[in-house]
Design a protein around this nucleic acid. Sequence first.
DNA 1: CCACATACATCGAATGTCGATGGGAGACCC
DNA 2: GGGTCTCCCATCGACATTCGATGTATGTGG
Lengths: 114, 114
Amino acid sequence: MTKTPIDLLQGTLDLLILKTLSWGPAHGYSIARWIEQLTGQVLQVGEGSLYPALHRLEERGWVEAEWRRSENNRRAKFYRLTTLGRSQLRAEAVMWERFVDAMAKVLRASEQPA
Amino acid sequence: MTKTPIDLLQGTLDLLILKTLSWGPAHGYSIARWIEQLTGQVLQVGEGSLYPALHRLEERGWVEAEWRRSENNRRAKFYRLTTLGRSQLRAEAVMWERFVDAMAKVLRASEQPA
DNA sequence: CCACATACATCGAATGTCGATGGGAGACCC
DNA sequence: GGGTCTCCCATCGACATTCGATGTATGTGG
C-alpha cells in the first residue's frame, strides 16, 4: 500500500532542492527522484515545478549549473551549491524549523489564550 | 527582544483558522490576535490574508458566520466551525503532520540515497 | 471632541505550484 | 535498422493564495 502524495507547500521546494544539493552536485531529474524516494513518494516533484525552481535558484546565485554526462550517458545539467547557496540553505532550514514550531504551538494548544 | 515574524506558507492559514475556531466561536480580529499571541508573534496574520480566508472557509461550508457584538461592544462577525469544518480540520492536520514528517526525512538525511 | 484601538472589507501585485505538452537522445531488443 | 523505453530538459497557461496598501465605521477614554 502506497500512501497518497501531498502537494508541496509553496516555498518549500527551494529548501528541498538546496538540501539535496548539499550532498553533492546533481542534475534535476535525480534531485526529483531522491526527494520522492526519501519521502516514500509522499512528496512528489513535478517537472513543471522543478525546472522553474532550479532556474530561480541559479538566477539568485544559490546554485551553479554545468552541462555534463549523466550516469546513463545522457546530457544533463548538473547543479552545484554555491557558497551563497549554502548559507541560504542554513537560513531556510532555520526558518522552516521556526515555522514548524510555531504551527505546533497552535495545533497542540488545548485551550484558547487568555 | 522579539523574534522576527515569518511569512505564512501558502495553505497553512486555513488550518490555523480552523484549529483556532475549534476552541469555540470567534471573530476574525481575535483569531488573528490569538495566533500571533500563541506563536509569540512568529506568525502574523495580515488582514489582507485573514478576511479572504474566512470568506473562503465560509463558502466551502467549513464555517458559519453570524453578526454579534464583540467583548468590546463592537459589531463583529462571529465564525463557528461546522461539522464539515471539523472533519476538514482533522484532515488538514493529518496532512500537515505527514508533510512535516516528509520534510524531516529529507532535511535530516545525512547522505544521498543509493 | 479628538485620538485610538477595534473590526470589517477590497484591491492589485507578486509569487509559486500544477498539469499538459513537446522534444531530443542514449539504450535495448528483435 | 527500426521501434520503443527511459531519461532529461524545457515552457506554457491556469490557478490559488499571500501581502501591503487603503478605506470605512464605531465605541471608548482622555
